[in-house]
Write a protein that binds this DNA or RNA. Structure first.
Lengths: 187, 187
DNA sequence: GCAAAAGTTAACAGATCGGTACACTTTGAG
DNA sequence: CTCAAAGTGTACCGATCTGTTAACTTTTGC
C-alpha cells in the first residue's frame, strides 16, 4: 500500500477545493483538513498547482464514472440515455454537498486559456462532448456533433442555473428541452 | 464632479476583476492598474468586498443596458427578441476581452449562498429570468416561466460552452435549440 | 483667496500566502 | 532485527494579503 496516503491526500484536498474554492484554500488549511503534514504534501506534489491538477484528475474520474454508470443503469437506448442524463444531474443537484461543477469553477478561477488547470477543465468538458457525440451517432442523429453540443449546452446551463437560480427546476426544464431537440434532430 | 474618481476606480477595478478574478486581484495590484491611491480606495470603500459589490453593480448595469438595448435594436416581436438574444451573445463571445460571465465567476469564487457577493450574482440572473418571463408572456407562451427558464438555461449553457469548448458555435446551437423550443411552446 | 474636501506618497501592522529546512518517529520488506 | 522509505511537527523564509496611519498636495465651491 505505497501510494495510500497520497490518494487520501488528493481525495480530501478535492473535497476542500470543491467546497471552498482554489484560491480560497491555503496549504495550511489543507494540513488541518486532510490531516497530512505539509512536508508530506510537498514530497508528493512540488507545487499547489500540481495538487490541484491531481484533485481535478480524480474529480474527472469520479464524476465520469458516476455519471455514465448512472445513465447506463437508467436507460438502454441512445435516445433514452440522453434524456436520463438530466435525471442523473437532478440527483446530483439535490445532494447536500452540491456546489456546482468543479471544472466550470476551475475555468473561472484560472482564466488564462493556456493555464494547465484551465486546459484540464476544458478537457473534461471535451470528453463529455465526445461521449454524447457518439451517443448521438448511435441514436441516428442527422448532425451528431451539433446535437451533442446542444445537449452538453443544456447540461451546463442546468448546472449553472441550479447554482444561481431559485424557484426553478433546471434539470426538469433541460430534460424537457432535450426531448424537443431530439424529436426534430432524429426526424 | 464629485464622485468622478470613485466611478473611475470602480470601472477600472471592474476590468481587472473581470480579467484576473477576485481572489487573484489584490488591492496593491488595483493601485497600479487603476492609478488610484490605496488611501483613496479605502475612503470610498471600507473593504475589498464592498469594492467588489460596487464593481458587480456596475457590471450588472452595463451588461443589462447593452444586452437589452441590442436585443431591442435587432428585433421587434417578442419571439424575435428571444431569438436575437443569442445573436447578441455571439457578438459578446467574439470580443477580444471576452472572459465569460462575471456573475457565474462571482458565484463560483464566493460559493456560500448567503454571501453578499453570491447573493448579488444570483440577483443579476434573476433579473434576466424575470425579463425573459415577461417577454415569454408577451409572446403568448403557454407556460411563460418555464419557457423563460429554458431560454436562460440555454444562454448560461452557451456562455459556459463559449469559455470551455472549442470547435463549437454555442451561440448558433443555442439559438437553434431556442427556435425549436419556441415552436412548441407557443401553441 | 481661502478653507474644506479629496487626493497623494510611503511606511507600516498583523495575518496569511506558497514553499523549505531540519530533526524526529513510524512503518514495512527482506 | 535492520535499515531505508515514508511520514511527522515545528519553526522558518520572503512575498503578499487586507487594511491603517500620518504628513503632505491638489482640487473645488463660495
Amino acid at each position: 500500500m505505497r501510494p495510500n496516503k497520497r490518494d487520501e491526500l488528493v481525495s480530501k484536498a478535492l473535497k476542500v477545493f470543491y467546497r471552498d474554492g482554489f484560491h480560497a484554500t491555503g496549504m495550511d488549511k489543507l494540513v488541518v483538513e486532510t490531516g497530512v503534514s505539509k512536508t508530506s504534501m510537498y514530497k508528493h506534489f512540488r507545487t499547489k498547482e500540481e495538487l490541484i491538477l491531481a484533485a481535478l484528475r480524480l474529480r474527472d474520474e469520479n464524476f465520469r464514472d458516476w455519471f455514465l454508470k448512472r445513465i447506463d443503469e437508467m436507460a438502454e437506448t441512445p435516445v433514452e440515455q440522453i434524456l436520463v442524463s438530466f435525471d442523473a444531474l437532478k440527483e446530483w443537484f439535490e445532494e447536500d454537498e452540491f456546489r456546482g461543477c468543479m471544472f466550470i469553477k476551475a475555468g473561472a478561477e484560472f482564466q488564462d486559456p493556456d493555464h494547465p488547470i484551465h486546459v484540464q477543465a476544458a478537457e473534461h468538458k471535451q470528453f463529455l462532448l465526445d461521449h454524447f457525440t457518439s451517443v448521438a451517432e448511435q441514436a441516428g442523429a442527422q448532425d451528431p456533433h451539433k446535437l451533442a453540443c446542444q445537449i452538453v449546452l443544456l447540461q451546463e446551463g442546468a448546472i449553472v442555473s441550479a447554482v444561481l437560480l431559485q424557484h426553478c427546476d433546471p434539470a426538469r426544464d433541460a430534460k424537457d428541452a432535450a426531448k424537443k431537440l431530439l424529436a426534430s434532430a432524429l426526424n
